[in-house]
Structures are given as C-alpha cells and as structure tokens.
Design a protein around this nucleic acid. Structure first.
Lengths: 345, 345
DNA sequence: TTGTACGCGTTATCAG
DNA sequence: CTGATAACGCGTACAA
C-alpha cells in the first residue's frame, strides 16, 4: 500500500451536498446573523458529518491576517523564559490563536533573522525579549509600519516606542539591597549584567541609590560587571571578592544562576552563609529553593507577564492608537526571603 | 496622526516595475534554473529595492503545505521539555521552518483540542510527547490520514504506529539500579510514574530485572507508584519509606524532582546521604547539580532528541513510506554519578 | 435570507 | 528562457 491522502473537505463539498452556495456555507459556519437558525444548524451538522476542517491558511490569506502570535526570545530553556512562553501560549490558545516561537541564542544576527521570518509568516503580533547582544531595535520597525503590535517584555529596547510589559527593575534592585541592609550588611557587592540592557542598568541603579539612602558609600570594587551572568562567572567573581582584604558581607546578584554559584563557592571556601556572607538573587528560579541554604530572590511574575503580553496584542486590533504612543504595563515584584539572607529573626 | 499601513509589495509590483510577468518574478526569486542569470539578479535587486517580502501564507495555500512544524507537549516550563523544544526550534529554523507550540498541561482534553488546532493550521509535521492523562492516541490519526508525519518523543503511545524518538528506558532503569547495587545497596526503593505511560513502566521493569539479575528479590513495599512525581509526592513517599521498620538503603526515582525532594526530606530526618540512603534520579535537570549532595541521575539528550525529531519530519517528504510502518530512533543515556549515590571510591 | 463573482498572493502547468 | 492562465480555500461586496 502506498501513501493515500484522504480527500480534504472544503466548503464547496458541503455546498454541493446541500445545494447551497459556498458563501452560505461560509457564513453559516461562522454563525453569521443573516443565515436562518435551521439552515445554520443543518449546515454545521453536515460539516461535522463530512469531517470538514477549516483551512486557516486560506482564511488568513483572505483576511490578510493570520491568527499566529510570534515570540522572539533569547533562549527557551531558561525558567523565566519558558514560564513567560507558557503564559503567552495559554492565553493565546484560549482566544483561538497559535504561538510561533523563535530563539536567538542571545545573538543579534539571529534575532534580526528571526524577526524577518516571523514577519514573513504574517504573525498578527509579536512578543519579544531582546538578546544580550542587541543594542538597537530597528528590526522591529517592520512590524510597526504594518501596524502589527509588538510587545516588549523584560529585556526591552530603550530606543523604540512600543508596548512594554515589565517589572520595576529599579525598585526591585532597591528593595533587594535594602533588605540586605536591614539584615545588618554594610559591604554589599553587586553582580551586574550587561549595562546596555535596561533591566541590568536599572537594578544596579536601585542598588546604588539604596546604599546611598542608607548612608553607605558605594565601593567600586564591590560592583562586578558580568557578560552572561553564568555559573562560572559567578564563581570566579565570588572567589575574587572573598579573597579581598576587606571582603563584602553580602552579594546582590542580578540573576539566580550567579547567586547560586556564589553560595556554592563561598561554602567551598569555608565562608558561612548568611552569617559571613548574605546572598540574594533575582528571578526566583527553581534552583533558588534547592540550593542550601535556600536562596533569597526577587520573584518575577513570568507567567502573568506572558498573559498580559497576549492581551495587549489581542486588544490592539480594537483600539485606535496614535502612532508612536504605546502603553507600558509595570508589574510588581516581591522579595522572597529565604535562609541565604536571613540574619535577624 | 492615525494608523497608516504602508503598502505591501507583491510580485505584481515588481512585475510592473520591470515589465516582466509575475511568473518570471516568482521563479527568479526562487532562483529557478530556467531564468537567466542577469534577469534573476536584476529581479532580486529590484525586489530588495522595493522592499518586497514574500507572503508565505499565499505560498502555503497554493502548495497546500505550510512550513510550520507543530509541537504538542504537556508543559513548556520544564527543563527536559524546554530543551527538547529548543532542539526542534534550532534545527527547524535552520531549514527555513517555523515552530508552533502548544501545551496540554497534562490534560487529555487539551491535548485533543491542541492536536485539532495544529491540524487546522496546516502544520507540515508534528512533534508530540503525550500528557500524563493520555491513554489513547486516536487524535493523531487525522495527521497520518493526510500523510502529515507525526514524531512521538519521550512519552510515546503504545497503540499507534508512527515515528518515534526515544531513549531505552528499560536499559536506563536497569543501569541506574545496577549502579546502586554496585555501590553496595540491597534494599532499593523505586519511585515509579503512571504505569500507562511506557517510559515509566519500562524504567520500572529495568529496575526489577536488575534486582533479580543480582539475586535481590523485589519488595513490593519499596515500589512506590506516583501520579505526577511532584516534589510533594516525593517528600511524602520518602518520609513513609524512612519510617519503615526496615527502611531502604537507596532510592531510584523516575524523575529528578522527586529525587531531590527525597534528598531534602532525608536530610531533614537526619538520614545521611549517601551513606544511609543513596539516591539517583532521572533526566539530569539543573537542580540535580545544585542540591547537596549533588544528585546522580540519568542524562537524557533532550536537545538532540528535538533535532532528530525535526529531521524525521523534513526527511519524510522525500521518502516512500509504507503506511503503518515507521522508524524508531533510540538514543543512548548515561549514568551521571554524583555524590548522592557515591559510596565507594 | 441566499447567491454571484471576485480577489487575497503565490506557483504549477502549459504554451510559446 | 518567458508569459498567460488557472487554481489553492475562503470571505465579502453586491445583487437578487
């Protein structure tokens, strides 16, 4: 037996079966008001009987508008991102939309190519979080020019006005630092990410301002700039910090990976957590609850950010938006206090 | 200023510009052999100049074949799955395909609905890993009937013949158990997942046969059946096991989440790992390296499984496959030995 | 309430 | 090597 494709049923087949015109079928299947109740019912039943399945490709072409939402992120297999995607997917599917994903591997060229691919496949909207390398967002203009909504999440560009769904990174950095100060820490180090990305710059600013607000002069030696904030970078930085003449008594890391590596490195060097070194991370990844002592962190409502991103896209069609003006949605973060930073009771 | 859509350029616009026919433009843009070198070059340059972007919706409709690969999984935000997706996405995009995702939340009805949605959006192939609840795979037949390749990964159905990309779960279960035996353990417990899923059944069978092969009689009390293998289920089971008159000296868990919870629960009860209780998990999730002592596990080549799944789909078109006959790809696993099971040196 | 006719953008076929 | 034509399946003015 060779390949055998069963014939695909179209609205024409239903039309023939019932001696209606294709347009009547089309309308009935969409519950158009102008078609009689009984006619509609009959048509829908026959459609089901014949095994009719709508061809959304054809509908999209006709409407010049697909029901696919595109996602453009750096890497799928990270806790924050996969939760974000999960939120987009759930809410999109509930509304009858599909989700197209693309990852840039934190590479700018890939990001540009992916944006192109998503555009060419005629997505009806796009959710994007920039790659580490991205310093300009011109590749998103093609969407805006066609009035396709772009929602930037988390790692957002500073030079392009579009929808944003973000957290208040400045305030989160401030709160994290203040928490450490309240625990009695005075020499607080900070692991900062690439500064051309707003999120890391703002967390750092929050850190610095919190120090100043509590009468602590920021020490440049305690401010560590990292590229990728990997486990290895965290280990190395921690080792250097602990070997200083005047080592820090706390670390606020801009992500959990580096924070966890700090805890593990400190323990390896015999430094007690949190007594000698308090640590707080960012994101509240699963590893934060597993490391010992458990890592304090800033919780980031990833799933919800995804849901809100979808919402912005779906709402967009209904709105009359002035070009160049867009909404910014800011979500709350929470300081999750665990053993790694708990010095006082 | 109100919404302003720039005109979209089509092959007709290029045709008008250059006084060629649309068919010539179409062919030139695809580097068709029959078009002259210089004509092709001229057309491609003009296309670029005018800002032409292909409409893949139209092409897909015409060809009755999209370039979208669908993914159907239970949950995106799990390490194994997000790596799998990552593998599919990378290889698909490299070949010029897009990836549509859908998650069932381990719910059968959602899975059926998602399969329908992916079918309706005319994917050219699908990669699927079943939900926990799924006991029959009839909802995948619609694809096979249209000769749309379905690749089952990891959690595969037992009642439907299609492509499979899997690991040898029996052998992995055997190896894990044997490793514990070699460390001197004799009362080895097993956390088994839902038995209607092949992967868990096979791991359990491997466990039982390994015991027998080494002269150990399986003890029913040490075989714990779980539903979701969550952290909580693992904690509870561990607590019960440790409170037995004759507690186990090792646990082989079918996933890392439950294994990590076992370690943490054992420590809480003052049981020493690995001296009094050796533990090995499955999947080699990130948490395995973070928990203390670090968790031994079975590594699962998720990314590679994704890449191979894409490959099967892309190859499918070229092949003459007999209906009802499909290839099975079995990948190697590796026992990753860490401190949680290392009793001998 | 239902039907007619056309077009969405592309590509395959056939003709030249 | 290039052009004309039809078709993919659907949606919608317009007509009846």
């Amino acid at each position: 037996m060779s390949k055998k494709k069963n014939k695909v049923v179209t609205i024409y087949d239903i039309a023939n079966e019932l001696n209606y015109s294709p347009s009547t079928i089309s309308r009935a299947l969409k519950n158009h008001k102008s078609i009689g109740k009984d006619t509609t019912k009959q048509i829908q039943e026959t459609a089901k009987k014949l095994g009719y399945r709508p061809n959304s490709l054809a509908a999209s072409l006709r409407n010049n508008r697909s029901n696919n939402i595109g996602i453009l992120i750096a890497r799928i297999n990270r806790p924050f991102i996969s939760s974000l995607i999960s939120g987009v997917e759930n809410s999109a599917r509930a509304a009858g939309y599909n989700v197209l994903i693309s990852q840039s591997d934190d590479n700018y060229k890939n990001e540009v190519a992916n944006a192109k691919a998503l555009y060419d496949s005629r997505v009806c909207g796009i959710v994007a979080s920039l790659s580490m390398e991205t310093k300009n967002a011109d590749h998103f203009k093609q969407f805006l020019e066609q009035d396709i909504p772009v929602v930037f999440v988390d790692r957002v560009p500073s030079d392009l006005n579009s929808y944003r769904v973000i957290i208040d990174n400045y305030s989160a950095g401030y709160k994290a630092t203040e928490h450490l100060i309240q625990q009695g820490c005075t020499r607080i180090a900070h692991f900062a990410g690439a500064q051309h990305l707003n999120i890391y710059k703002l967390r750092k600013n929050g850190y610095i301002d919190a120090l100043k607000a509590h009468g602590i002069t920021p020490d440049k030696e305690l401010l560590i700039y990292m590229n990728t904030m990997s486990f290895e970078e965290g280990q190395e930085a921690t080792s250097k910090l602990l070997n200083m003449k005047n080592p820090p008594d706390a670390i606020f890391s801009s992500n959990d990976t580096a924070a966890v590596s700090a805890i593990m490195q400190a323990k390896k060097q015999g430094v007690k957590i949190p007594e000698e070194l308090a640590v707080i991370g960012f994101n509240d990844d699963p590893i934060a609850s597993i490391v010992e002592p458990a890592l304090s962190s800033i919780s980031h409502p990833a799933m919800k950010m995804g849901e809100l991103s979808t919402k912005r896209i779906l709402e967009h069609a209904d709105k009359k938006i002035e070009q160049g003006v867009s909404e910014i949605t800011v979500l709350d973060t929470e300081v999750i206090v665990r053993a790694s930073s708990l010095r006082k009771k």
